[in-house]
Amino acid sequence: MKEAHKQTSKFVDNDILRYFYGEMPEEEKNAFEQALMHDKNLRKSYKELTFTLGMLPAEETAFQSPEPEILNNILAFSKVSVQATAQIHAEENTIEDKLIKIRKYTPRPIIVGMAILFSAIVNFSGYSQYKQATNKKVKHEALEWENLDNAEIQKIHRDITVLKEHRGGILPADSAVYEVVTHDESTTIVLP
């Protein structure tokens, strides 16, 4: 009895609502139920509040619906949105395909490594040795111009210029040299 009084004293009207909507932890819920049995005032408040809660109308009565026209507008927007998203995804896939192609034609690390090594040799021994090396066609990489982006093409052109300028001379230390057989197989270029 003493325990019940102790529990009762801590519950207020707000707790009745928490109890009603099942938002009380199990232990507190048990204590509340005990308090309800022993506290007349709490019981009175509980009856009053739950009576009114019981009077609240069913959802169908209390709630209205928006006009069908509004729902149709939303569904139409949804349709357009789904189509737009599908189109964006399709475009993303195309871009992804192109990226794969470019990657496919990009020199592999081993070739780049060989190019660096070759560059060092050329740098060390001069153009005559470079010429000798290229004649042996130690490195080949098929590149298709249309799969290269502008920056790459510009770089290739720049390196061709570098190569031309250094014919008969020594290539600069920062140029890696390796031979690329392009579409028409007529251009020998230098890629850094």
């Binding site: 709630f63 209205q64 619906s65 928006p66 729902l71 569904l75 349709k79 789904v82 599908a86």
Partner: peptide, 26 residues
């Protein structure tokens, strides 16, 4: 399903929740 392009899935979601949403706003 709706994210994967199923429009009908959204129609169901709309039907299911329209009353609550509309009445909260109202």
């Amino acid at each position: 399903a709706y994210q994967e392009g199923n429009e009908q899935a959204f129609a169901i979601l709309l039907q299911k929740h329209q009353k609550h949403v509309y009445n909260v706003i109202l």
